[in-house]
Design a protein around this nucleic acid. Structure first.
Length: 456
RNA sequence: GGCGCGUUAGCAAAGCGGUUAUGCAGAGGAUUGCAAAUCCUUCCAGGGCGGUUCGACUCCGCCACGCGCCUCCA
């Protein structure tokens, strides 16, 4: 039985889909005005893992991850770059797709874009206005009236009074209450705008997710995910909008993944301490990054450093090494198998990937001892559930990231030379060649079947 | 100030009220021409102070330290 830590309940709960056998999941995706950083990588990989596990568990999943392609930062960046908003967002959506693909993140079933759902947003805002939960201020903006929704704060555990006490934001004079938030922003000259009953403008930050999730998944669905920093205010405001408009529970299970940190500090745009995915991928195999992310529990902080990535690389190398030289057919998932059962138990416990990975290493040990094809198949199949270990081992082990620039045929030539030297027991020469290769980032291994190599 | 989370061996990171986590690194052995890889053995834990218990890293309380949200943020 799958248990999920539900942010709104602040405890693990048994997972029961609204419709038996079917799961509807919505995850807050990217605002596309820049390259994705490691924080984005974590959201994508974590919820890709969640999606894979739900499906491996036999559930019929509909996974929606939105793209926010209109917002203040996008407008600002496009102006700075002297390009249209469409050009900017298309560019970064393409980059995001590349990054996601590199990390082994499968495409969600649906990736709705905010600009495709303006009508849905306007409809929802209209409902909120009719119900007295929203109002048009004198400056033309439409605000959500937080005081009118009595569940406000239930996700983040904040009361309106607490929030007021901690007020650090300049109070917008047009708001009735400082905590009211914008649903619709009236257009300023030169800004992109859509027509609306309240005048030309564009959507506020939170309404797009309420509108898009409703459009694709309905008023009430199973899982809503995102980074921890979205819990407040973004998700809190989504609840206010959706439940305010529909008068029913919005989401049953809220999932929030932990932050990526650098030097024990949150990686964020405002701190400027972020690394983009593509930056990291110039130094590390993307699967190493995926492995690194899944090696920690999704709710824990994840500290980024080269030392930790190198450590992850070593660990993943061990797994691939175990599979090297074994022809593996895919095994079927059989939860009666002891190791698979242990893996399942771990994953069912709020997606405990570190524990699930421990099973992988135990299996690797078994494969190394027995060289058993079935054990190898179980290893590869279970790893596949996490989106790992699916490439030919040589591709990973001999992959790029070598310091030197020797082509494979050059390496093979040197290995042949060394073999010749060894044949005449000229070990000095053999060792010299081996050292030369090592200096070029190539490690040799002599086996009964001959010499093989891998990248250092 | 309000709310919340964390503190595990050299590093990373889990489960568990009493029995080896796991990976990397270290030590010894097997193997190897020597290595590498692999296998075997092994060292190194649970912030501090109390409490509950026959027994606590694991439950409870307090304290210390760290982190996060309350502002755009995955």
């Amino acid at each position: 039985m799958l248990k999920i830590y539900n942010s709104i309940a602040r405890e693990k709960e048994e997972f029961h889909p609204i419709t038996p056998g079917k799961v509807r999941m919505y995850v807050c995706g990217m605002t596309v005005y820049d390259f994705c950083h490691l924080g984005h990588a974590r959201v994508m990989v974590v919820f890709d893992m969640v999606a894979r596990w739900l499906r491996a568990s036999g559930l019929d999943l509909t996974y929606v991850r939105n793209i926010t392609d209109i917002d203040d930062k996008i407008i600002k960046r496009a102006a700075e770059n002297n390009e249209s908003i469409g050009e900017l967002t298309e560019r970064f959506i393409r980059a995001m797709d590349e990054d996601a693909a590199a990390l082994g993140v499968k495409k969600p079933d649906l990736e709705p874009r905010a600009t495709q759902h303006i009508a849905d947003m306007l409809n929802m805002i209209a409902v909120l206005v009719e119900k007295g939960l929203a109002y048009r201020a004198d400056n033309g903006d439409v605000f959500y009236a937080v005081r009118g929704f009595n569940g406000y704060g239930k996700l983040s555990g904040k009361s309106l009074e607490d929030l007021r006490a901690g007020e650090r934001v300049e109070v917008d004079a047009y708001k009735r209450d400082p905590l009211d938030f914008v649903l619709w922003k009236s257009a300023k000259p030169g800004e992109p705008a859509w027509e609306s009953p309240w005048g030309p403008g564009r959507p506020g930050w939170h309404i797009e997710c309420s509108a898009m999730s409703d459009h694709h998944l309905g008023h009430h669905f199973d899982i809503h995910g995102g980074g921890q920093d979205l819990q407040f205010p973004h998700h809190e405001n989504e609840i206010a909008q959706s439940e305010g408009a529909h008068d029913c529970t919005y989401v049953n299970y809220w999932m929030h993944n932990g932050f990526v940190r650098v030097d024990e500090e949150k990686m964020s745009k405002s701190l400027g301490n972020f690394f983009t995915i593509r930056e990291v991928l110039t130094k590390y195999d993307p699967e190493v990054l995926r492995f690194f992310i899944l090696r920690a529990h999704y709710r824990s902080p994840l500290n980024y450093s080269d030392a930790h990535l190198n450590d992850a690389k070593q660990a993943l190398t061990r797994l691939y090494t175990a599979l090297r030289g074994i022809e593996v057919d895919a095994a079927t998932l059989n939860w009666n198998d002891p190791q698979m059962a242990r893996f399942q138990t771990a994953m069912d416990d709020d997606f405990n990937t570190p524990e699930a990975m421990a099973v992988l290493f135990d299996l690797a040990n078994e494969v190394n001892r027995s060289r058993d094809v079935n054990a190898a198949a179980r290893l590869k199949t279970l790893a596949g559930v996490l989106g790992l270990l699916q490439r030919p081992p040589e591709e990973f082990l001999q992959g790029a990231s070598t310091a030197g620039a020797l082509a494979p045929d050059q390496i093979e030539a040197l290995i042949a030379e060394r073999a010749a030297a060894k044949a005449t027991r000229n070990f000095a020469e053999a060792d010299r060649i081996r050292k030369e290769l090592l200096d070029n980032g190539v490690v040799l291994e002599d086996t009964p079947q001959g010499t093989i190599w891998r990248s250092a």
